[in-house]
């Protein structure tokens, strides 16, 4: 397969960037999308050009490192799929593919397709945890958790922190990411003591990072490779109102 890749090239955070076109004449349909970039990079290296920088690690859709916007879609055209799990067979011979970094003022471009997502870590640091110092835990069966609650907590806990929600949101909002953590921890009995402070602190940290506000467009959940649902955002709002009104 012959593909043309138009890739955002930017030498550093303060440098100007632009889209540059590259031909890949020997793309194999069985390649993953990142392997396609690997092949291009091998060639660029031998030609003495700077290879394309992009984040990636596990390449099995769970670490959350990878993520680029492909033809205007975060993680590309396949639903519930990270960039590393997308394969070249999703495209056709002769296609021109636009590849761009996540765009959000909170995600500065470091180089080419790599962005700084540390804002998401700072949101978690503000309260996305249960304070249970090592050794202080009670016996695991001392607090049964109803299965539906455990299952819903799990669904929200599957967030991989890739940032696709922010990239897809026309407002650059991190509501889905933040709400997944609130919905995960606030629904569990173990998370109850810090329920109010957690949601207030997370939202405050989210706002401080410069992420946009939520207008419930739902682009986030459509782009999310783990399918975190929109009702997590409703949960966050519910918890936030509850905490703001001082209800225990």
């Amino acid at each position: 397969m012959k593909l043309t890749l138009r890739i955002w090239r930017q030498a550093g955070p303060a440098e100007p960037g632009r889209m540059v076109a590259y031909e890949v004449p020997d793309a194999n349909p069985d390649m993953s999308f990142l392997e396609l970039l690997d092949v291009l990079n091998e060639r660029l290296t031998l030609e003495g050009e700077d290879p394309v920088t992009f984040d990636h690690d596990c390449r099995e859709g769970i670490c959350g490192s990878c993520g680029v916007v492909i033809n205007g879609q975060a993680h590309g055209p396949r639903a519930l799929t990270t960039t590393c799990q997308l394969h070249v067979r999703s495209f056709s011979d002769g296609d021109v593919i636009d590849i761009e970094p996540w765009r959000s003022v909170a995600f500065g471009v470091l180089k080419d397709l790599m962005v700084d997502r540390s804002g998401l870590d700072r949101i978690i640091q503000a309260g996305g945890y249960i304070s249970a110092p090592t050794g202080s835990a009670p016996e695991a069966h001392s607090t049964p958790v109803p299965k539906p609650i455990a299952d819903s907590a799990f669904d929200n806990a599957t967030c991989i922190g890739c940032g696709a929600c922010v990239a897809a949101c026309p407002n650059g909002s991190a509501m889905l990411f933040t709400s997944a953590k609130v919905a995960h921890l606030n629904s569990l009995p173990q998370g109850a003591p810090e329920r109010a402070s957690r949601v207030l602190n997370l939202v405050e940290a989210m706002d401080a990072e410069g992420f946009g506000g939520c207008t419930n467009t739902g682009e986030c959940t459509n782009a999310c490779p783990k399918g975190i649902p929109m009702d997590s955002i409703a949960t966050l709002n519910r918890e936030y109102l509850r905490a703001s009104l001082g209800r225990k």
């Binding site: 249970a132 835990a137 109803p146 455990a150 799990f154 569990l188 173990q190």
Partner: peptide, 14 residues
């Protein structure tokens, strides 16, 4: 297991 449950790890439950 005790530690992880206290941290909110959503293990499978019955």
């Amino acid at each position: 297991i005790d530690q992880c449950v206290a941290q909110g790890v959503p293990f499978a439950r019955e």
